[in-house]
Design a binder for these strands. Structure first.
Length: 276
DNA sequence: TTGGGTGTTGAGTA
DNA sequence: ATACTCAACACCCA
């Protein structure tokens, strides 16, 4: 589910409920979610008596900064965090619970159980998988047009696949890649190394602009996404092509086509987005 | 009823 | 290097 704007919104809404709360107990009902450390009891031990000092985002990852540790969490398709009184009944698909010292608890809910958690000693998280595989954040100074254009020039893949590659730029997913390419007037099947610098610039600007706008709207709710206060996003109203197959393109009126690119459903206006 | 599709990403295979 | 299939899992819908 969540791409950068949704994770950013979750971070912002979750913060106010968990900052300076101390974890007194941890329950794990689906151990496969915990990727590190291997031993679940060790995972619990390392978190117990730790307080959450801050939450950060890196690409699509949430980083819970504790006193001595950092919990790196990826929501994959359907992961959600929310805070509840301990007495409140559990929703279906709650898999991990971090009990606090104030009668509340942070709950991780994930219908498809695809999400992951990696726990590190503070400072180790950046030098290890999964974070050390990531390219720059789209909003980071390191994500310059020159960096982006160099990456495009040296790969033979189609542009959509490159934009989905988190090692190139961290945070874009299927929705925002389709929207970015529509705004840049570039066909998703165009080879990255065939793009001119002005086309690279159009994509680069469209990606940053689209993500910023989506953050401002609290993300995109297609099926199930809600932030940590339970609110839906609003950016679905701003989508041009994603989810609009067979509807008239908002720019030219020709029907939006849905195709497969790199195994992912892909929405394109073949009139506005030229292969050239 | 059932097969195909879903906002993700890793592994394994040519 | 790249592309493709499959896997993880639950649910929705034509």
């Amino acid at each position: 589910m969540p791409e950068l704007p949704e994770v950013e919104t979750i971070k912002n809404t979750l913060k106010r409920f968990v900052i300076d709360k101390t974890i007194t107990d941890v329950s794990v009902f689906w151990p496969n979610i915990i990727k590190q450390p291997d031993d679940i009891d060790h995972f619990k031990h390392l978190l117990t008596e730790q307080s959450i000092r801050d939450i950060h985002r890196r690409g699509k990852f949430l980083l819970f900064e504790l006193d001595d540790a950092v919990l790196v969490s990826h929501l994959r398709m359907e992961g959600k965090y929310s805070v509840h009184p301990s007495a409140e009944p559990l929703k279906k698909h709650t898999h991990v619970i971090f009990k606090f010292n104030n009668g509340e608890e942070l709950r991780y809910n994930d219908v498809r159980k695809f999400g992951t958690m990696h726990l590190f000693k503070k400072g180790d998280e950046r030098n290890n998988k999964p974070l050390n595989q990531l390219g720059p954040d789209p909003f980071d100074e390191a994500f310059t047009l020159d960096y982006f254009y160099q990456k495009l020039k040296k790969t033979d893949r189609v542009i959509k696949s490159v934009l989905l590659d988190q090692a190139v730029v961290a945070g874009l997913g299927n929705i925002y890649v389709d929207e970015t390419l529509f705004k840049a007037h570039i066909h998703p099947l165009k080879k990255a190394n065939k793009l001119k610098k002005r086309e690279a610039k159009a994509i680069w600007e469209a990606a940053i602009h689209t993500l910023k706008e989506a953050v401002a709207q609290g993300g995109t709710t297609i099926r199930s996404y809600v932030n940590s206060q339970g609110d839906m996003g609003m950016f679905q109203q701003e989508l041009f092509v994603y989810g609009h197959e067979n509807e008239p393109c908002k720019t030219c009126g020709n029907p939006v086509v849905k195709m497969k690119v790199g195994g992912r459903g892909t929405h394109v206006c073949v009139s506005c987005q030229k292969m050239k």
